[in-house]
Design a binder for these strands. Structure first.
Lengths: 140, 140
DNA sequence: ATGTTAATTTGTAATCGTTACAATTTTATA
DNA sequence: TATAAAATTGTAACGATTACAAATTAACAT
């Protein structure tokens, strides 16, 4: 569902965000990465091509993206905020061995939750922890 | 399912935790509270009856409880680690208005997730955000 | 073009939650 | 009662995030 974003500048504009160079590169990096990077990972990756980049800018930009709903924050562990350009509802699995965070597809509408029937739901988060299949194989 | 804990001291012992006074009071407080307190909330509540209590002790004790599997950590928002004496899998709903964290019952086994079929799942977390029914009524 | 204002970026300092660590107190044991 | 082990405590350190003001860049009117 993210494949449809061909022009990042236009995409940001259509979400009322002025497409500065930093903002475009940060969003492009999020689009291209599948590892749900932290602020630090984004900063370390981009400082190479944007030598003047400030970590504050990365924070500001990600907060802006979240406010405008084009990026979602993933809080899997305390002290480890991660970001995802895929804002559709999906699950995350964190491997306790290799520390990777993987996506998984699921449909939460089948849960039919009685207790919050009359609540207005704005966000749905699902995350699992355990050992991924790769690490299970290696561990034998 | 938590009603069965009648003797906190015995319960801690049966989980290989020496039941010191601080540990018992912290666990009792968790059992009696339904608001999934933070370390700060626990500390502020107990300092009244345990004047020598240290915040470090609250941290140490909660980490001990989590390691022994009798308390689970809930990470709903960054910078807001909460604790729950109910370790059964259940959902959490955080109201964006009144900031309360409510439990809801659900059965995740119906999700039938293909992508992680061969993974070993150790923890399952489900949390929603939005507006609770009380705040919805008030907001009209 | 040029000057002026607004928006963005940047760096530093401050804040807050959490942990490290050593000292003190309490508990268990010989 | 003496000694060792465990638990608690207080302070300092740490890391992620934010506040804030200065510097840079972009936009816009003259």
């Amino acid at each position: 569902m993210l494949g449809k974003i061909t022009n990042v500048g236009e995409f940001l504009k259509s979400n009322d965000i002025k497409p500065s160079y930093q903002r475009m590169r940060i969003f492009e990096y999020l689009l291209g990465s599948k590892d749900h990077p932290t602020v630090d990972m984004i900063y370390k990756e981009l400082i190479g091509e944007i030598p003047t980049l400030s970590k504050t800018t990365v924070y500001n930009t990600l907060n802006l993206f979240v406010e405008h709903g084009i990026v979602s924050r993933i809080t899997i562990e305390e002290n480890e905020t991660r970001y995802d350009a895929d804002t559709a509802v999906h699950g995350h699995f964190k491997c306790e061995k290799c520390e990777k965070v993987l996506d998984f597809v699921t449909d939460l509408s089948v849960l039919n939750i009685q207790d919050i029937k009359e609540f207005q739901i704005n966000q749905q988060h699902l995350y699992f922890r355990g050992i991924c299949s790769d690490c299970l194989k290696k561990g034998e």
